[in-house]
């Protein structure tokens, strides 16, 4: 309920009016779970924008996978992250051999949820794509039937980059790629995922921002 209100009154007006989206290939967005949405990561706005794209009735089942050490670092943020954003907290440092950091993700997929995942691991330098981490490959291997939608985002890193609190409006590009699936081996899968997002990046016009 609180989540619905937060999205209806704050997130949607913010994303649709203050920012404004330029969406290509909207029809490729998965309409039901289980599915994984994978995107480059430049801003806290990324998660909010992706959540507004996915079907409204699915809102409760959209699960951003987010760093535990960052989002659960104090009580207020933890409450917001867990109860409003419904994140799946991810342990960035593997503590013991017997721990499986991806188990909650697989569990959520079994429940028919849609995961939102940023394989760069953090927001990094604004509008620069970092190297993808391979957690997504492990997840894909364990769930070979789950479609994986690659999405390229551009502009949100200009609107609200890491370390800034002031939002400056820019239109944001959201380019959705064709769904991918586990390709049989890790290296191949990672290459096809990265090249899918890079190919989407080439579709648009990105003015210099330095």
């Amino acid at each position: 309920m609180l989540q619905q209100l937060f999205f209806a009154l704050i997130v949607r007006p913010l994303v649709l009016i203050v920012i404004g989206l330029n969406i290509r290939h909207r029809e490729r967005i998965p309409l039901k779970g289980p599915a994984i949405v994978v995107s480059n990561h430049n801003s806290h706005l990324d998660t909010l924008v992706l959540m507004t794209l996915l079907p409204w009735p699915m809102l409760r089942q959209l699960r951003p996978v987010a760093a535990k050490d960052y989002f659960l670092r104090n009580r207020i943020l933890a409450w917001f992250a867990l109860h409003i954003m419904h994140i799946i907290p991810l342990e960035r440092e593997i503590l013991g051999r017997h721990q499986d950091p991806l188990a909650p993700c697989s569990e959520a997929l079994k429940n028919g949820d849609i995961l939102i995942l940023f394989p760069e691991g953090s927001r990094g330098d604004p509008e620069q794509m970092g190297k993808f981490k391979t957690g997504i490959a492990h997840l894909a291997k364990r769930n070979p039937d789950v479609p994986i939608a690659p999405i390229f985002l551009h502009g949100l890193g200009k609107a609200l980059p890491k370390g800034e609190a002031l939002l400056v409006p820019f239109f944001c590009d959201v380019f959705v790629g064709k769904p991918l699936q586990w390709a049989g081996d890790k290296a191949n899968f990672m290459t096809s995922l990265e090249s899918a997002i890079k190919a989407l990046a080439e579709e648009g016009h990105r003015p210099a921002w330095e």
Binding site: G155, P161, F170, W209
Partner: peptide, 22 residues
């Protein structure tokens, strides 16, 4: 607002100028 936003999203801008654009 929409026109200025479209213009500023289209042209090259400087990272340093975020607050100026605001």
């Amino acid at each position: 607002f929409l026109a200025l936003k479209e213009y500023l999203s289209l042209i090259p801008t400087r990272r340093a100028d975020r607050r100026v654009l605001f």
